[in-house]
């Protein structure tokens, strides 16, 4: 018999819990994004201004995270660098997500020679370790933020393309696609209104999981001196610059390193919570 208040089953409760997790991490991640966007307007000091009198000063009330080798305020540089690091990452993920999905869906849906050609090309790209390829490309193009993004983007779209392709191949064989073809739908119409909506979910999950990895790659290239040109603040570059005097001013290394760690962790938690929710809905 039905009661007044519907009793939730275990799986529903579990889903609500997962949903709550996604919302919490989503809010945290949004806060980071907002913070990093507006941070440059509220800097305590100019992140580029050197000060010979204040070199390698330990954290104090004036300089919460201390100063670096050139007397620049570490906190200011950190906040200014947040925008570079985080927004470069997000842009890169969005662009490779878009390119990868389009290529993957087209390859998966049509198959045939085009599919073979593109997939062999991605095989070639993936046969070289990603970071090595990125270093080579960044080395050729020269250090700048855009070039770093290009260097990483050359390989990062392939993972989206492969995922989108496998989903498109699966969806293509479902009866409803045949049913659509029998209503006289064009291929473009089928792809846009039937294939894409059915694979966009897992693709987005993959994208959120990739944010952390991409951020690490950008920071890694900057650390190797192939990213942004100094003195522009960027977390990876900051770690690289300050590691020479690690014993004298450990804060100048630890601050950007922990910032990278924390942000990557938070984005990964967010990605994983989205992934958990998506898989619980499928089950």
């Amino acid at each position: 018999m039905k009661t007044e208040k519907p009793k939730l089953s275990r799986s529903q409760i579990k889903q609500l819990k997962l949903k709550r997790k996604v919302i919490i991490w989503g809010v945290v991640v949004t806060m980071i994004l907002v913070l990093s966007f507006f941070a440059p307007y509220f800097l305590p000091y100019d992140p580029l201004e050197t000060n010979a009198a204040m070199m390698r000063k330990a954290p104090s009330l004036q300089h919460l995270f201390g100063t670096d080798n050139m007397g620049r305020d570490v906190l200011s540089r950190l906040l200014a660098g947040a925008r570079t690091s985080i927004f470069a990452t997000i842009m890169l993920v969005i662009i490779s997500f878009f390119v990868g999905t389009v290529v993957g869906v087209i390859c998966g849906y049509y198959g045939g020679a085009l599919d073979d050609l593109v997939m062999r090309f991605t095989d070639i790209l993936l046969s070289v370790p990603q970071l090595v390829l990125a270093i080579a490309v960044a080395g050729m193009l020269g250090g700048s933020l855009v070039n770093t993004m290009i260097a990483i983007g050359i390989t990062s779209w392939t993972s989206y393309a492969r995922l989108a392709r496998s989903h498109a191949m699966r969806i293509r064989q479902l009866p409803f696609i045949n049913a659509c073809r029998l209503t006289g739908c064009s291929d473009a119409h089928i792809i846009i209104t039937h294939v894409v909506p059915n694979l966009i979910g897992p693709m987005l999950v993959n994208a959120t999981l990739e944010i952390g990895t991409t951020m690490l790659s950008i920071a890694g290239l900057s650390f190797l001196g192939l990213g942004v040109a100094p003195p522009t603040p960027e977390w990876g570059a900051m770690v690289s610059e300050s590691r020479n005097y690690l014993q004298l001013a450990p804060w100048a290394v630890f601050a950007p390193a922990s910032a990278i760690l924390l942000t990557v962790m938070l984005f990964n938690y967010f990605g994983e919570s989205v992934c958990d929710l998506a898989s619980s809905k499928e089950a």
């Binding site: 479902l174 009866p175 409803f176 045949n178 049913a179 659509c180 039937h194 909506p197 059915n198």
Partner: peptide, 11 residues
Amino acid sequence: FQDSEAAFDPK
């Protein structure tokens, strides 16, 4: 089709 649920777009 036999599998009628799959013959409709689930979304």
